[in-house]
């Protein structure tokens, strides 16, 4: 029986998400798992933008910041339910990505890098400076989602860690499913074509500008949802979520794991989220090790961790 790459990816994800808790020695690991899923959602967006369409963004944390602060601000100021606030954040991110993306996606390579970098810095600067609204660098509280209480009333009693683990896991599966569908759709094929060569794609009738913009908007929504989930889960948010280092983290997770495949990128998110947890014992060396890992993987495994591992495993089979 042949299983399509899409079903295989989804199957692996579902099994991993469902079975991992068996190995958890304590409730704390649900929290780490949820954190991995939140990062993986944003990174799946980066796969669409960078892996499919070949465009760089050094400012996607800006959209995560918008999603996060929408969940913090909209319930207080507009009286929206946090879940609606999350949708509002995603909508704002989409509109903003559309407005910003139109001019800057004409740029290529490093120029696109500096333009997206500028966008991210502008967002994080607004979050840092508008103290009356956002609380400035000290951050602000985020209201409770309220869903866990509803589930409890319905007879499903989960700990806070378990609840967020499974909620973020479900959102991640949905996110991966959408991204995989996109990959095989005509739009996905056109995106991959323009990744190979914009000129060649244009000559066969691909609307390059429109498609790049689509990929940019979709990935912005992914980042925004990831930011919202992070804010709701922590019930507290600081402008760091929109900072430059968070943008770099997203891109690094994707490329480190293997930006060409959803599963690879999610693997990258898991590795880089776990790394600081493992290194807490040697907290002083955390940055040294992180820097070494980033350089080492890119030099020795340029395709990313997962594709390189898979190739090695398959090579031995044959």
């Amino acid at each position: 029986m042949r299983v399509s790459a899409k079903s295989a990816t989804l199957l692996v994800l579902v099994v991993l998400i469902l079975l991992s808790p068996v190995l958890f020695p304590s409730g704390y690991y649900y929290r780490v798992g949820a954190l991995i899923f939140v990062n993986a959602i944003a990174v799946t967006g980066i796969v669409i933008l960078t892996g499919y369409a070949g465009q760089i963004s050094l400012g996607h944390a800006g959209f995560a910041g918008i999603g996060a602060y929408a969940c913090a601000l909209a319930p207080v100021h507009l009286g929206l339910h946090p879940s609606l606030a999350m949708i509002l954040g995603a909508a704002i991110s989409a509109v903003l990505a559309w407005l910003v993306g139109r001019p800057i996606l004409r740029l290529k390579g490093y120029y696109l890098g500096v333009a997206t970098l500028g966008f991210g810095i502008l967002v994080s600067m607004v979050l840092n400076n508008e103290r009356q609204l956002t609380g400035g660098p000290d951050g602000m509280e985020v209201p409770d989602l309220g869903l866990r209480g509803l589930l409890k009333d319905a007879g499903l009693d989960l700990t806070n860690g378990q609840f967020w683990y499974f909620l973020c896991g479900i959102v991640l599966i949905a996110a991966a499913w959408l991204a995989l569908n996109l990959y095989n759709s005509p739009t996905g094929r056109a995106l991959r074509a323009l990744h190979g060569s914009e000129v060649a794609a244009r000559t066969v009738g691909v609307d390059v500008a429109r498609l790049k913009l689509q990929a940019f908007v979709i990935s912005a929504v992914y980042a925004s949802v990831s930011g919202s989930l992070l804010a709701l889960q922590n019930k507290f948010i600081t402008p760091d979520v929109a900072g430059f280092m968070h943008s770099i983290e997203m891109v690094t997770m994707a490329v480190l794991g293997g930006v060409g495949s959803i599963l690879g990128a999610i693997f990258g998110a898991a590795v880089l989220t776990l790394l600081p947890q493992v290194l807490t014992v040697f907290a002083e060396y955390e940055q040294l090790v992180l820097g070494l890992v980033m350089m080492g993987v890119m030099i020795f495994l340029p395709q990313g961790l997962l594709p390189s591992i898979l190739r090695r495993v398959r090579g031995k089979d044959e």
Partner: peptide, 18 residues
């Protein structure tokens, strides 16, 4: 380009950590 960005940012994090 993306890999090179990550390598040089990795180098910068490494130097900063050192």
């Amino acid at each position: 380009v993306v890999s090179l960005i990550i390598i040089t940012i990795g180098a910068s994090i490494f130097i900063r950590g050192g």
